[in-house]
Amino acid sequence: MLEINKELEDYILSHTEKEDQLLTNLSRETHVKMLRPRMLSGHLQGKFLKMICQMLQAKRVLEIGTYTGYAAISMAMGTEESCKIHTIDCNDELEQFTRKFIKRAGFEKKIHFHIGKALEIIPKIEETFDLIFIDADKRQYIDYFEAVYPKLRQGGFIVADDVLWDGKVLKDIDSNDKQTQGILAFNDFIQKEERVENVLLPIRHGLMMIRKK
């Protein structure tokens, strides 16, 4: 496995389409004003998600774990005006900040921002999705998968973030580390799941791409 150090990361980003200025501003403000700014999707992952939306010509997208909206806005940039993106976050303290950037991007009608528990909100959304992005509580990844699977079209994709979890998946873990346990359980679950095909990509903290057969 190729180790991505800072110099190599800079090279990768210098050969990736330039970050949109609004997203640069969003990233900067997130790092200045928010706790745990590393939760931000960021430039490389944002471009990847945008291109996935473009390749799928996605009309309906679901995101679990909005944070400050970087991924949602990136995906909105890769979809047609008629696309509907539902994004869910349980932290109502982020709402004002996130809605501000959604409005600045001009996506108030395209991005439908839900505040609350994803497992309670998902059953209420009457849509069939082309793409689902999961980036929330790692302890509930399997539950999220089971909740969204019936709402994903055949041939549609789920992208799950943080599946390498800073390399913790290869280390002895503390019995109290429920987040890492959740990731390990999810990765094993998907590998054995016969209803899908999957590939784990070493992008940022690890992305599991899952296609519904």
Score class of each variant (00 low, 15 high):
Gly65Thr: 03
Glu81Val: 14
Thr66Val: 04
Glu9Gln: 14
Ala118His: 00
Gly69Ser: 06
Asp174Cys: 12
Glu7Tyr: 11
Val163Cys: 11
Met1Gly: 15
Arg38Thr: 15
Arg36Met: 13
Asp10Tyr: 11
Glu19Ala: 05
Met209Glu: 11
Ile88Cys: 04
His86Ser: 08
Thr68Gly: 04
Asn187Ile: 04
Lys59Tyr: 03
Asp137Arg: 02
Met208Phe: 10
Lys178Val: 14
Ile190Arg: 03
Ile64Glu: 02
Ala76Ile: 01
Asp20Asn: 12
Lys18Leu: 12
Glu95Trp: 07
Glu95Tyr: 11
Leu207Val: 03
Ile88Lys: 02
Met34Asp: 05
Thr24Asn: 11
Lys117Cys: 08
Ala160Gln: 01
Cys83Gly: 07
Asp130Val: 04
Lys213Gly: 10
Val159His: 02
Asp166Phe: 14
Arg195Phe: 11
Tyr144Asn: 08
Gln179Ala: 14
Glu19Gln: 12
Glu108Ser: 15
Thr16Phe: 02
Arg139Val: 13
Thr24Ala: 13
Cys53Asp: 03
Glu197Trp: 12
Asp130Ile: 02
Cys53Ile: 03
Ile52Cys: 02
Asp162Val: 02
Cys53Asn: 05
Phe157Gly: 03
Arg211Asn: 07
Gln154Arg: 15
Phe113Glu: 05
Ile102Lys: 05
Tyr70Cys: 04
Gln181Ala: 12
Ile12Pro: 06
Gln181Cys: 08
Leu94Tyr: 06
Met75Phe: 01
Ile102His: 03
His112Thr: 10
Leu62Met: 05
Asn198Glu: 14
Asp20Glu: 14
Ser74Lys: 05
Lys47Gln: 09
Lys100Val: 07
Lys124Ile: 09
Met209Pro: 05
Gly167Val: 03
Glu127Cys: 04
Ala72Arg: 02
Lys138Gln: 08
Met34Val: 09
Phe107Gly: 07
Lys109Asp: 15
Arg28Cys: 08
Phe48Leu: 04
Glu120Asn: 14
Asp92Val: 10
Cys83Gln: 03
Glu108Trp: 09
Ala71Gly: 09
Gln96Pro: 02
Ile85Val: 04
Ser82Glu: 12
Phe133His: 01
Asn25Met: 13
Asp135Cys: 05
Thr24Asp: 12
Gly156Arg: 01
Glu108Cys: 13
Thr128Ile: 14
Lys178His: 15
Gly206Ser: 06
Leu40Lys: 10
Arg139Ala: 14
Gln54Ser: 10
Ile102Leu: 09
Gly46Cys: 03
Ala71Thr: 07
Arg195His: 15
Asp162Gly: 06
Gly65Lys: 00
Ala147Glu: 07
Thr16Lys: 10
Lys109Ala: 15
Leu35Cys: 10
Tyr11Trp: 06
Ile52Phe: 00
Arg36Ser: 14
Ala118Trp: 00
Leu170Phe: 12
Arg153Val: 11
Leu40His: 09
Lys100Arg: 13
His15Arg: 15
Arg153Thr: 10
Phe129Tyr: 09
Asp89Met: 06
Lys178Ser: 15
Asn176Gln: 12
Ile142Gly: 06
Leu62His: 00
Asp188Ser: 13
Ile210Asn: 01
Phe48Ser: 02
Gln54Trp: 02
Ala72Leu: 03
Glu9Leu: 13
Leu201Thr: 15
Arg38Phe: 13
Asn5Ile: 11
Leu164Lys: 05
Asp135Val: 01
Glu146Thr: 12
Leu164Met: 09
Gln181Ile: 06
Glu193Lys: 13
